[in-house]
Amino acid sequence: MTLPSGLRSLSVRNFRLFAAGQLVSVAGTWMMVVAQDWLVLSLTGDSASALATVTALQFTPLMLFTLYGGRLADRHDKRRLLMWANTASGALALSLALLDLSGAARLWHVYLFALALGTVNAVEVPARMSFVSELVGAELLPNASSLSAAYFNVARVAGPALAGLLIGASGTGWVMLLNAASYAGTVAGLRLMRTSELHRSGRA
Protein backbone atom coordinates (compact mmCIF):
# COMPACT_ATOMS: atom_id res chain seq x y z
CA MET A 1 0.00 0.00 0.00
CA THR A 2 1.33 3.43 -0.97
CA LEU A 3 1.35 5.95 1.86
CA PRO A 4 0.42 9.63 1.40
CA SER A 5 3.42 11.89 0.85
CA GLY A 6 3.10 13.32 4.34
CA LEU A 7 3.57 9.87 5.86
CA ARG A 8 6.40 8.61 3.66
CA SER A 9 8.75 8.05 6.58
CA LEU A 10 6.38 5.45 8.01
CA SER A 11 7.30 3.20 5.10
CA VAL A 12 10.61 2.65 6.92
CA ARG A 13 10.24 -0.19 9.40
CA ASN A 14 12.78 1.16 11.86
CA PHE A 15 11.08 4.55 11.94
CA ARG A 16 7.66 2.93 12.54
CA LEU A 17 9.06 1.11 15.57
CA PHE A 18 10.67 4.29 16.81
CA ALA A 19 7.58 6.46 16.32
CA ALA A 20 5.27 3.95 18.05
CA GLY A 21 7.59 3.67 21.03
CA GLN A 22 8.04 7.41 21.28
CA LEU A 23 4.30 8.12 21.10
CA VAL A 24 3.70 5.86 24.11
CA SER A 25 6.77 7.02 26.00
CA VAL A 26 6.24 10.77 25.51
CA ALA A 27 2.61 10.44 26.62
CA GLY A 28 3.83 8.55 29.67
CA THR A 29 6.42 11.24 30.40
CA TRP A 30 3.82 14.00 30.42
CA MET A 31 1.59 11.84 32.60
CA MET A 32 4.53 11.55 34.97
CA VAL A 33 5.03 15.33 35.05
CA VAL A 34 1.40 15.88 36.06
CA ALA A 35 1.48 13.08 38.66
CA GLN A 36 4.78 14.31 40.09
CA ASP A 37 3.49 17.87 40.44
CA TRP A 38 0.26 16.62 42.01
CA LEU A 39 2.25 14.55 44.49
CA VAL A 40 4.35 17.60 45.45
CA LEU A 41 1.21 19.64 46.10
CA SER A 42 -0.25 16.80 48.16
CA LEU A 43 2.90 16.43 50.26
CA THR A 44 3.32 20.16 50.92
CA GLY A 45 -0.23 21.44 51.30
CA ASP A 46 -0.24 23.14 47.89
CA SER A 47 3.14 24.84 48.22
CA ALA A 48 3.93 26.94 45.14
CA SER A 49 7.61 27.19 46.05
CA ALA A 50 7.96 23.41 46.30
CA LEU A 51 6.31 23.03 42.91
CA ALA A 52 8.67 25.60 41.41
CA THR A 53 11.66 23.81 42.95
CA VAL A 54 10.78 20.40 41.54
CA THR A 55 10.20 21.93 38.11
CA ALA A 56 13.57 23.68 38.23
CA LEU A 57 15.32 20.50 39.33
CA GLN A 58 13.81 18.55 36.45
CA PHE A 59 14.53 21.01 33.66
CA THR A 60 17.77 22.73 34.73
CA PRO A 61 19.92 19.69 33.72
CA LEU A 62 18.49 19.98 30.21
CA MET A 63 19.69 23.57 30.03
CA LEU A 64 23.12 22.84 31.49
CA PHE A 65 24.07 19.42 30.11
CA THR A 66 22.35 18.96 26.75
CA LEU A 67 25.49 20.05 24.89
CA TYR A 68 27.44 17.33 26.69
CA GLY A 69 24.67 14.89 25.88
CA GLY A 70 25.05 15.85 22.24
CA ARG A 71 28.76 15.07 22.41
CA LEU A 72 27.93 11.61 23.76
CA ALA A 73 25.46 11.10 20.91
CA ASP A 74 28.12 12.08 18.38
CA ARG A 75 30.71 9.72 19.81
CA HIS A 76 28.66 6.65 20.69
CA ASP A 77 26.03 4.36 19.19
CA LYS A 78 22.81 6.41 19.43
CA ARG A 79 20.55 3.37 19.51
CA ARG A 80 22.40 1.85 22.46
CA LEU A 81 22.56 5.21 24.19
CA LEU A 82 18.79 5.56 23.85
CA MET A 83 18.22 2.06 25.22
CA TRP A 84 20.33 2.82 28.28
CA ALA A 85 18.70 6.22 28.83
CA ASN A 86 15.16 4.85 28.56
CA THR A 87 16.00 1.94 30.84
CA ALA A 88 17.38 4.37 33.43
CA SER A 89 14.31 6.60 33.16
CA GLY A 90 12.02 3.61 33.55
CA ALA A 91 13.90 2.44 36.65
CA LEU A 92 13.71 5.91 38.22
CA ALA A 93 9.99 6.23 37.48
CA LEU A 94 9.36 2.75 38.89
CA SER A 95 11.25 3.55 42.10
CA LEU A 96 9.28 6.74 42.72
CA ALA A 97 6.02 4.96 41.88
CA LEU A 98 6.73 2.24 44.46
CA LEU A 99 7.58 4.84 47.11
CA ASP A 100 4.33 6.65 46.36
CA LEU A 101 2.20 3.50 46.35
CA SER A 102 3.69 2.37 49.66
CA GLY A 103 3.02 5.75 51.27
CA ALA A 104 6.74 6.28 51.93
CA ALA A 105 7.29 9.11 49.42
CA ARG A 106 8.67 12.33 50.87
CA LEU A 107 9.33 15.68 49.24
CA TRP A 108 13.09 15.14 49.10
CA HIS A 109 12.46 11.87 47.24
CA VAL A 110 10.56 13.77 44.56
CA TYR A 111 13.32 16.37 44.34
CA LEU A 112 15.98 13.70 43.96
CA PHE A 113 14.13 11.76 41.28
CA ALA A 114 13.25 14.93 39.36
CA LEU A 115 16.93 15.89 39.25
CA ALA A 116 17.96 12.37 38.19
CA LEU A 117 15.32 12.19 35.45
CA GLY A 118 16.32 15.61 34.18
CA THR A 119 19.95 14.51 33.98
CA VAL A 120 19.05 11.39 32.03
CA ASN A 121 16.89 13.48 29.69
CA ALA A 122 19.90 15.72 28.98
CA VAL A 123 21.48 12.66 27.35
CA GLU A 124 18.32 11.18 25.83
CA VAL A 125 16.97 14.28 24.06
CA PRO A 126 19.94 15.05 21.76
CA ALA A 127 20.47 11.35 21.07
CA ARG A 128 16.80 10.93 20.12
CA MET A 129 16.72 13.97 17.88
CA SER A 130 19.89 13.04 16.01
CA PHE A 131 18.88 9.38 15.74
CA VAL A 132 16.01 10.24 13.40
CA SER A 133 18.47 10.88 10.55
CA GLU A 134 19.97 7.41 11.03
CA LEU A 135 16.51 5.87 10.81
CA VAL A 136 15.38 7.38 7.50
CA GLY A 137 18.38 8.95 5.77
CA ALA A 138 18.80 12.45 4.37
CA GLU A 139 16.02 12.25 1.76
CA LEU A 140 13.23 11.47 4.25
CA LEU A 141 14.63 13.45 7.16
CA PRO A 142 12.39 16.56 6.72
CA ASN A 143 9.29 14.37 6.60
CA ALA A 144 10.43 12.28 9.58
CA SER A 145 11.17 15.42 11.59
CA SER A 146 7.68 16.76 10.87
CA LEU A 147 6.07 13.49 11.93
CA SER A 148 8.19 13.44 15.08
CA ALA A 149 6.96 16.92 15.99
CA ALA A 150 3.37 15.83 15.27
CA TYR A 151 3.39 12.75 17.51
CA PHE A 152 5.20 14.71 20.22
CA ASN A 153 2.45 17.33 20.27
CA VAL A 154 -0.27 14.67 20.26
CA ALA A 155 1.37 12.93 23.22
CA ARG A 156 1.87 16.25 25.02
CA VAL A 157 -1.89 16.84 24.90
CA ALA A 158 -3.06 13.27 25.49
CA GLY A 159 -0.65 12.52 28.34
CA PRO A 160 -1.79 15.18 30.82
CA ALA A 161 -5.45 14.60 29.93
CA LEU A 162 -5.12 10.89 30.62
CA ALA A 163 -3.11 11.60 33.78
CA GLY A 164 -5.93 13.74 35.15
CA LEU A 165 -8.44 10.94 34.68
CA LEU A 166 -6.17 8.29 36.19
CA ILE A 167 -5.14 10.40 39.20
CA GLY A 168 -8.79 10.96 40.01
CA ALA A 169 -9.51 7.25 39.69
CA SER A 170 -6.47 5.60 41.26
CA GLY A 171 -3.94 8.17 42.51
CA THR A 172 -0.53 9.41 41.43
CA GLY A 173 1.41 6.21 42.14
CA TRP A 174 -0.39 4.19 39.48
CA VAL A 175 0.17 6.93 36.93
CA MET A 176 3.90 6.84 37.65
CA LEU A 177 3.85 3.05 37.39
CA LEU A 178 2.18 3.29 33.99
CA ASN A 179 4.86 5.74 32.87
CA ALA A 180 7.57 3.33 34.00
CA ALA A 181 5.95 0.60 31.90
CA SER A 182 5.82 2.91 28.86
CA TYR A 183 9.61 2.95 28.66
CA ALA A 184 9.57 -0.80 28.08
CA GLY A 185 7.79 -0.20 24.76
CA THR A 186 10.46 2.25 23.67
CA VAL A 187 13.30 -0.09 24.58
CA ALA A 188 11.55 -3.01 22.85
CA GLY A 189 11.15 -0.96 19.66
CA LEU A 190 14.84 -0.02 19.71
CA ARG A 191 15.89 -3.64 20.22
CA LEU A 192 13.67 -4.83 17.35
CA MET A 193 15.26 -2.47 14.84
CA ARG A 194 17.36 -3.83 12.00
CA THR A 195 20.73 -2.24 12.57
CA SER A 196 21.81 -3.13 9.03
CA GLU A 197 19.15 -0.69 7.73
CA LEU A 198 20.38 2.30 9.76
CA HIS A 199 21.95 5.18 7.83
CA ARG A 200 25.12 5.60 9.82
CA SER A 201 27.96 7.87 8.79
CA GLY A 202 31.58 7.16 9.59
CA ARG A 203 33.16 8.88 12.57
CA ALA A 204 36.38 10.86 12.21
Score class of each variant (00 low, 15 high):
L51W: 03
V54K: 06
L57A: 10
F59C: 01
P61G: 07
P61K: 02
L62C: 04
Y68G: 05
G69S: 06
D74V: 08
R80H: 14
N86W: 07
T87Y: 08
G90T: 04
L92H: 03
S95T: 13
L96I: 08
L96S: 11
A97E: 04
L98F: 13
L101C: 11
L101M: 14
R106T: 14
L107R: 06
L107T: 07
H109M: 09
L112E: 00
F113T: 03
L115Y: 04
T119W: 05
A122K: 00
A122R: 05
M129W: 11
S130P: 10
S133P: 09
A138W: 06
A138D: 11
E139G: 15
E139D: 15
P142D: 03
S145E: 05
S146T: 11
L147D: 02
S148G: 15
A149P: 02
Y151G: 06
V154Q: 05
R156D: 04
P160C: 00
L162S: 13
A163F: 00
G164A: 07
L165S: 14
L165V: 14
G168M: 13
G168A: 14
A169R: 09
S170Y: 15
M176L: 10
M176P: 05
L177I: 08
L178Y: 01
A180E: 03
S182D: 07
V187D: 09
V187G: 01
A188P: 09
A188K: 04
A188R: 12
R191T: 14
M193Y: 13
R194W: 08
R194S: 14
